[in-house]
Design a protein around this nucleic acid. Structure first.
Lengths: 140, 140
DNA sequence: TTGGGCACTTACCAAAAGGTGCATACTTGT
DNA sequence: ACAAGTATGCACCTTTTGGTAAGTGCCCAA
């Protein structure tokens, strides 16, 4: 047919196709993204993946810049999505801790390459963002 | 997975720590997320990773449900971030196509595990979302 | 001559996401 | 007595995000 079959002009292996399996999701990637969408979710997940069960206050201090409202909200969603487990010790000064479920753990694993990518290419990303921000602030 | 070396509650510690390397980013994961944030970006990236250079109209039709405004906007950002390359053929009926840069390709690779995760756990995710949506629509 | 496709651009709006700050009920430390 | 810490809840508000609809300039087909 067409002569345009100059194979992988790019050395990298082809990305496997993302087949739509269930209604409501265009593909697996889509499904994943809905679950990790949220400013702090991946960071929470990743943080929990590194340590064991973590108390709310510790989490709060670890994920700096997060507000109570946001942290609680995202934790609740993660819990509802079956990614984290909340343990309430019903004690007098409240004591609660959060840990990953096995599902949460598996997701955290899947995040590793993203994290690596970011680490490897952080310089480029940083530069690009600096430019964009500079341009934005100049314009505004 | 790691074999059963799980004496403590902390089972598998294969998640490497995400070290803050540059100012402005808490970690590599953070950096990555800023670049792929956006409702359509991962899908665009993933789609471009599967085929070669793609014309705007084709992309538009492929990523169904995306509006012109959104597609253009996200493409522009991806281009500004050095992930996609835009080629304008300056022809009479406009002809433009988009392809991934090597940086874009590497990011697409990093997305593969996320895609797989979603595919593998789509049933769980789907169920959880159905519940949540049902609950929301009842409440509203 | 009208209509459609191409690759956008713009103006306007609704919804969602996220932030601030106060309140709770109880305890411990000063 | 009072402040501070604990883990949240809630009301209010701003910012960000995404969607709709229209328009642009050009060409080709009917």
């Amino acid at each position: 047919m067409s002569d345009t079959i100059s194979p992988p002009a790019q050395a990298s292996p082809p990305v496997p196709s993302c087949t739509p399996t269930l209604p409501g999701f265009t593909c697996g990637l889509d499904a994943t993204l809905r679950v990790v969408a949220g400013k702090w979710k991946p960071l929470i997940l990743y943080f929990l993946a590194q340590g064991g069960p973590t108390r709310y206050g510790d989490l709060r201090r670890a994920v700096r810049d997060v507000s109570d409202k946001m942290l609680i909200q995202q934790l609740k969603e993660l819990e509802a999505d079956g990614l984290v487990k909340r343990t309430d010790y019903k004690e007098v000064p409240p004591r609660v801790d959060y840990s990953l479920t096995s599902l949460g753990h598996s997701l955290a694993q899947a995040l590793v390459p993203l994290c690596s990518w970011g680490t490897e290419h952080m310089a480029e990303v940083s530069r690009v963002f600096a430019e964009r921000d500079a341009w934005n602030t100049k314009r505004r």
